[in-house]
């Protein structure tokens, strides 16, 4: 089974993705991660205005199989959270890179976190 790994995104080994932009990035979990978790039933996210640090947990995803922390690929202030997920957590399964996005962050140091993988590296990790 092969999973979608969009080229333009950057990834964490723990299966989160981020868009690349100096002003504002979106963060979510990968296609592989949503498949591993199975049906997502609950998502817990920070509040807009919270400061989060790259590599640290910012939220929780609960599926019928497991409860998992979600880690941030970048440091910065949370600009927005996808509140749609509170009512429709299934969006994480249905469209992990689109409507299933989790938070928007204003990256304080750009998207320069050294642990980030590009699409090829991440693809190799989950292969």
């Amino acid at each position: 089974m092969s999973f979608e790994v969009p080229d333009e995104l950057r990834y964490l080994e723990s299966h989160e993705w981020t868009t690349v932009d100096d002003e504002s990035v979106r963060v979510g979990i990968s296609d592989f991660a949503q498949d591993e978790l199975g049906d997502v039933v609950f998502v817990e996210l920070p509040d807009a205005g919270d400061e989060i640090a790259a590599g640290e947990e910012f939220g929780v995803v609960e599926s019928i199989k497991a409860v998992s922390d979600v880690y941030s690929p970048v440091s910065g202030e949370v600009l927005a959270v996808n509140e749609e997920l509170f009512d429709r957590p299934e969006l994480v399964n249905e469209d992990p890179y689109g409507d299933g996005w989790m938070i928007e962050i204003a990256p304080s140091d750009g998207v320069g976190y050294e642990e980030l993988l590009d699409a090829d590296e991440y693809d190799a990790q989950i292969a």
Binding site: D39, V41, F42, E62, I64, P89, E90
Partner: peptide
């Protein structure tokens, strides 16, 4: 009872 819809029940 038939198979319970665990996902529906949790969501």
């Amino acid at each position: 009872a038939a198979r319970i819809d665990q996902v529906g029940a949790a969501r």
